[in-house]
Design a protein around this nucleic acid. Structure first.
Lengths: 101, 101
DNA sequence: TAAAGTAGTTACCTTTGCGTAACTATCAAA
DNA sequence: TTTGATAGTTACGCAAAGGTAACTACTTTA
C-alpha cells in the first residue's frame, strides 16, 4: 500500500488515469478534458506515470507533432478502482441528477 | 472525481482508511500499525478526515485518556476501493510469496 | 512575412505535505 | 517527587505539489 501511494498519492494522477480509462488521448486533449489542470502539472505527471510504467507515451513523427498517451497493463488494472472512486464521488458529492416527477 | 481527490489525494490518508477497514483503533495503535507515519501527519490527517465526514472520533473521558477512531458510513464505502488498491499494490510491487516447488 | 496549430518548457512563486524533536496535560502508581 | 501511560501539540524547516504566464520549436497555410 505504501508503495502504491508513493506513486498515486497526489491530487491529479488518479484523475489522469481515470480520463484514460476508455481512450487514448493526446496532450492537448487531456489538457482540455481535465478541468483546471495546468499544463505544467500535466507534463510532469505524465512523465512520472510513464516512468512508473502506468502509461505509455507514443510519439508520431509528424508535423504538427502528435503524441498519444494510453494506459499500460499495469495502468489498466487500476481502471475498476478509479471507476469505483468516481462512483463514490458522485454518490457523496455530486449534484444528484434532476429528480423524476 | 476532483472533489474526491481533493480529500483523498495524499500519500497517507488512504493508508489510514485502509488500516481502519476492519477495526476501530486508538491514536497510538494507528501510529504503531502504520509504519513510518509521523504523529504530526497522523494528527492532521485524522482531523481532516473527520471534518470531511470519513472517520469518527470518539473520546472517552477516562484516565489515561482514550480516543477511538472508526470509519463512518461514507468512509466504509471506501473499503472495497482501498482493498482493491492494496491488491493492486501486492500484485505489482510486493515480494511474491515464496514459490512452491 | 505573419499567423496558426501541437506539444511542450522555463522561470518564478506559493501552498501543502511531511519529517524530527521537544514539549504539554492529566492522573495514578512507585 | 519522579516515572509512566495516553494523546496529542508546537516549533522549525525542507521538499514536493501545484499555479501562472511567457516562451520555444517546427512546419504549413494565408
Amino acid at each position: 500500500m505504501q508503495r502504491s501511494m508513493g506513486i498515486l498519492g497526489t491530487r491529479w494522477k488518479p484523475i489522469i488515469i481515470y480520463t484514460l480509462r476508455d481512450r487514448k488521448a493526446r496532450f492537448g486533449q487531456l489538457d482540455a478534458l481535465i478541468e483546471n489542470i495546468s499544463r505544467k502539472v500535466l507534463t510532469s505527471s505524465l512523465k512520472e506515470l510513464e516512468e512508473d510504467g502506468i502509461i505509455l507515451r507514443e510519439e508520431f513523427k509528424e508535423l504538427p507533432p502528435r503524441v498519444e498517451y494510453a494506459l499500460t497493463e499495469k495502468g489498466k488494472a487500476l481502471i475498476p478502482i478509479m471507476c469505483q472512486l468516481a462512483k463514490w464521488n458522485e454518490e457523496y458529492y455530486e449534484e444528484p441528477a434532476a429528480l423524476e416527477l
